[in-house]
């Protein structure tokens, strides 16, 4: 496992929640962790908004210069360069969605050349542009081209928010594994809400082993899901 982990993927695939969960998991295991929010395309539901939660867990957060303000300007602080020098820290990058969001990584290509990172593509097979092997391969290729980094693995995050089911996850796993085979990449982790994990078939859970991880949801306001209950 490399020291730096980068989460890229289609927007809305779950990169931010997974970055938050991963940073908290590493911090919980006693690591010194920095979460780098370099999402410069998405204005809402950002990991940088969770600074209180993260700093409470001892995680350092680096965010875009004007993040959370009215300035729609894609400016990143020079401080981010520090993560390539401080070799005793674990680094989690939360990158913006789509090829457009991944392009920002190109700025750090020479640092990643010196110290290769794990670059994971996050996929939710119930999102548009991610619902077939062809679409997943196309999206992954387009992002890889723009971020100029070799992709090292895929992360599975099939969900329908509060309407998620174990069946969706099992089907999504098959689909993503088929796409990953075509791309010659491993599926390194699968995330699901605890309520889904407990209802998964035992054989599926056993096969995935420790690569199956519970996902806590941090960025959704609670009032957002009331409607789902009403329906």
């Amino acid at each position: 496992m490399r020291r730096i982990e980068v989460h890229i993927g289609h927007y809305g695939s779950g990169k931010t929640e997974i970055s938050l969960n991963r940073a908290l998991e590493l911090a919980g295991a006693g690591e010194k962790v920095t979460l780098v929010d370099i999402d410069i395309v998405n204005p809402y539901f950002r990991s940088g908004e969770q600074t209180e939660l993260l700093e409470g867990a001892g995680i350092e957060v680096l965010r875009p210069t004007f993040e959370g303000t009215n300035l729609d300007i894609p400016s990143l602080p020079a401080e981010i360069q520090r993560v390539f020098v401080e070799k005793d820290r674990r680094i989690v990058f939360d990158v913006g969605g789509d090829p457009a969001g991944a392009a920002v990584l190109g700025r750090y290509v020479r640092y990643f050349a010196e110290e290769p990172a794990e670059v994971y593509v996050v996929v939710n097979t119930l999102r548009p542009w991610s619902t077939s092997v062809e679409e997943i391969c196309w999206m992954t290729g387009a992002i890889a081209e723009r971020c100029r980094l070799p992709i090292t693995g895929m992360i599975h995050n099939t969900n329908l928010a509060r309407q998620s089911t174990p069946e969706q996850l099992v089907k999504g796993q098959e689909l993503l594994e088929a796409a990953a085979r075509q791309l010659s990449l491993p599926v390194v982790r699968t995330y699901a809400q605890a309520s889904v994990i407990e209802k998964l078939p035992t054989a599926f859970r056993d096969r995935l082993g420790i690569s199956l991880k519970p996902l806590s949801i941090y960025t959704r306001p609670e009032w957002l899901d009331l409607e789902a209950d009403v329906e």
Partner: peptide
């Protein structure tokens, strides 16, 4: 079948 969409994407597709 249902898919997970952002409001903006869903409006465009609709």
């Amino acid at each position: 079948s249902k898919i997970l969409m952002k409001g903006n994407e869903a409006i465009a597709e609709a």
